[in-house]
Amino acid sequence: MSGTVTQIIGFVLSTCGWVLTSSTIATDYWKVSSIAETVITTATFWSNLWKSCVTDSTGVSDCKDFASMLALDGYIQACRGLMIAAVCLGFFGSIFALIGMKCTTIGGTDKSKARIACFAGVTFILSGLCSLTACSLYAHQITAEFFDPMFVAQKYELGAALFIGWGGSVLCLCGGGTLCFSSVSTCTERFTGYIYKGAASHSHVSTSHRGPLKPAGQLPSPSPEYSSSSHTRQFDKNAYV
C-alpha cells in the first residue's frame, strides 16, 4: 500500500511539473523592462522565445516575431530546443508512469510494471533537467547583459516565465525521483519475500523428512529386515566358505 501511495505522489508531482513546464513556453514575460517617460506614459518591453513586444500604459502592444531562426542568438535557439525536449520527455514520461503504476491494470507483471515506472521516473528527471538548463541559461544571459557596463542596448530583468519554469523543473525532478524510489523499493520487497518463503519451505521439508531429533549418543533402532535373527540367518558359517 505504501508503494502505491508513493507512486501516486510521484505521478502527481511529475505531472504538475510537466504542465508548468509546458505553460512556460507560451508565457510572454521571459524578460521584461519598463521605461517611464512621464508620470502618465510608461512603456513596457518584454520578450520570450518567439517574439519581442512593447506595451504602453493604455494596454496596446506592438509585437515583432523573430524573423529567422538561424539569425537568432545561440542561447535562444538552445533554450527553444531544451524546452521542446522537456515537454516531449514529460509527455512520454506521463504515459509510462500510468502504465507502470500499481493501481492500473495494464503493464504486465509487478516486476515489469516496476521497471516501466522506474523508466518513467528517469524520463521525468531528464525533462526537469532540460527545463532547468533552459531557464538558467536564459537567466544567465539576462543578468550578464544587465551587469555589463559595456552593454549599451536595452537591458532587461528576469520575467515571470523563468520562475514558473524553475518551479516546474523542481517538481519534475522530485516526482521522477519519487517514482524511481518507489520502483526500487518494490523490487526489493519482492526479492526479500521470495527468499523468506523459500527458506521456510526448505525448513518444513527438512523437518518432515528427517523426523524428530535424537538425543546425542542414542543410536537409531534397527529396522525389522535387519534384525539380529535375520542377520544370523543371512550370514551363517557357510557364508565364509
Rank of each mutant, 00 (worst) to 15 (best):
V39H: 07
A43I: 14
A43M: 11
A43P: 00
F45Q: 01
W46S: 06
W46F: 15
L49Q: 05
W50R: 10
W50V: 06
S52G: 06
S57M: 04
T58P: 00
G59P: 03
S61K: 13
S61A: 15
C63K: 12
D65R: 09
F66A: 05
S68Q: 02
L70Q: 11
L70A: 15
L70C: 04
A71N: 12
Q77I: 14
A78Y: 10
M83V: 06
I84H: 08
I84C: 09
A85H: 04
A86P: 00
V87M: 14
F92E: 01
F96G: 06
F96Y: 05
C103W: 10
S112A: 09
K113P: 05
K113T: 06
G121C: 08
G121Y: 08
L129H: 06
T133Q: 05
T133L: 14
A134V: 06
S136K: 02
S136F: 02
L137R: 02
Y138V: 03
A139Q: 14
H140W: 08
H140P: 02
H140G: 11
A144L: 11
D148R: 09
P149N: 15
P149T: 14
M150N: 13
Y156A: 04
G159R: 13
A161T: 07
A161E: 09
L162I: 15
L162E: 10
L162N: 07
G165Y: 01
G165K: 00
W166C: 10
G167R: 01
G167M: 08
G168C: 02
L171R: 03
C172M: 15
G175M: 11
G175K: 04
